[in-house]
């Protein structure tokens, strides 16, 4: 496959990077949320929430910026997908709102019913968000019905199929694995040991989902594999992905929690890279009429805008990385609670 690094390709990659950043960062805090109800006791649950306390809303900014960049760089993709997935995205929004509110409000009152109510909201919302994002991703793989005017012509129920649900569940599993490792890294004593025991279970759950999804993709959606047949060297990425997943239990076993976390971050990046390579240069496949697909060329903004945005990205990204790294550095180490904690 020939790749020319024109502005359209660069923006395809940059949006991929933003969404990967989002999946890695918000992925662990969604995962912590998905596991939240399994943790018992108010103190332990507070530790769980405070482990993501200073960072979760910064993590969500990656989604907001990714959405903004998509709007600006590929307005047709933004318009078609957001209006086509209307009901699903409304549920996603309600999930995001409830989750944010649950985190903010849980600690503000001491009553048991109050805290339990927000615990549930936090956990269910986290699972719902991951599930819907996974289903959306699944639909990008299967393709969605698009008309000649670039408009979505299906219904809500077209978006729900066994395959897209499977991708949804795989996403939940991936984030649970990632979140459990993060939680191990941020906790100590009994809670730490308990969570450590869960990491293996979440890995097994994820690997089962992952294998099932991959098999189904290979059989039913072979278009995702064309690039790999044409450029076999890309298989390295798939192998790398397996290796980093296999590395997680090893690092956990040796007590090197942060290396395990790096490994699972790398596996998220590798998975999304495989996904992006499978798609390229299409962004949204039109199924059943592939000629109406939205590609990095027919869905893009003008070259001038892509260029302006690239300048913004070059100026902005060093700052973003600097803030992100400093925040994670300042809040490194185990969770310690004080009067400002959630």
């Amino acid at each position: 496959m020939e790749i020319t690094f024109d502005l359209n390709t660069i923006w395809f990659i940059l949006i991929g990077v933003l969404l990967t950043g989002y999946a890695i960062l918000d992925g662990f805090d969604l995962g912590v949320g998905a596991l939240h109800l399994l943790v018992k006791g108010d103190k332990n649950r507070r530790i769980m929430i405070n482990s993501i306390g200073p960072v979760w809303d910064g993590n969500e900014v990656w989604l907001v910026t990714g959405g903004g960049a998509l709007f600006a760089a590929f307005p047709h993709v933004y318009a078609t997908v957001f209006s086509g997935f209307y009901n699903a995205f409304m549920l996603l929004l309600f999930g995001l709102i409830f989750r944010a509110v649950a985190i903010e409000f849980r600690s503000k009152q001491p009553m048991e019913w109050w805290r339990k109510m927000w615990d549930r909201a936090f956990s269910f919302a986290s699972i719902l968000i991951a599930l819907i994002m996974g289903i959306a991703l699944g639909n990008i793989i299967t393709g969605i019905p698009i008309g000649p005017d670039k408009e979505f012509v299906g219904t809500f129920w077209d978006l729900i199929s066994p395959y897209t649900l499977m991708v949804g569940v795989t996403t939940v599993a991936l984030f649970m694995m990632h979140g459990s490792i993060y939680a191990v890294m941020k906790t100590e004593n009994e809670l730490h040991d308990q969570l450590k025991g869960w990491v293996n279970n979440t890995i097994i759950f994820f690997v089962i989902c992952y294998v099932a999804t991959t098999m189904t993709t290979l059989v039913y959606f072979p278009h995702m594999t064309t690039a790999f047949k044409e450029t076999p060297v890309l298989f390295i990425l798939a192998i790398l992905n397996m290796l980093v997943i296999a590395n997680i239990p090893r690092e956990i076993h040796h007590g090197r929690d942060w290396l395990a976390f790096i490994s699972s971050s790398a596996s998220i990046a590798a998975l999304l890279a495989l996904f992006a390579i499978g798609l390229f240069p299409t962004i949204v496949l039109s199924n059943p009429n592939p000629e109406f697909s939205l590609t990095i060329y027919n869905a893009a903004s003008s070259q001038k805008t892509l260029n302006i945005m690239l300048i913004m990205a070059i100026i902005g990204i060093p700052f973003v990385l600097a803030y992100t790294i400093s925040i994670y550095w300042i809040f490194r180490g185990k969770v310690k609670m004080d009067s400002m904690s959630y």
Binding site: G68, F74, P75, S301
Partner: peptide, 23 residues
């Protein structure tokens, strides 16, 4: 999108990251 989107993206990259990080 070509016009409005870039202002929105600028908001994300220049303002939201700054705000949420230092918050």
């Amino acid at each position: 999108g070509d016009v409005f989107g870039s202002a929105l993206a600028a908001e994300g990259i220049f303002a939201f990251f700054l705000e949420s990080g230092f918050l």
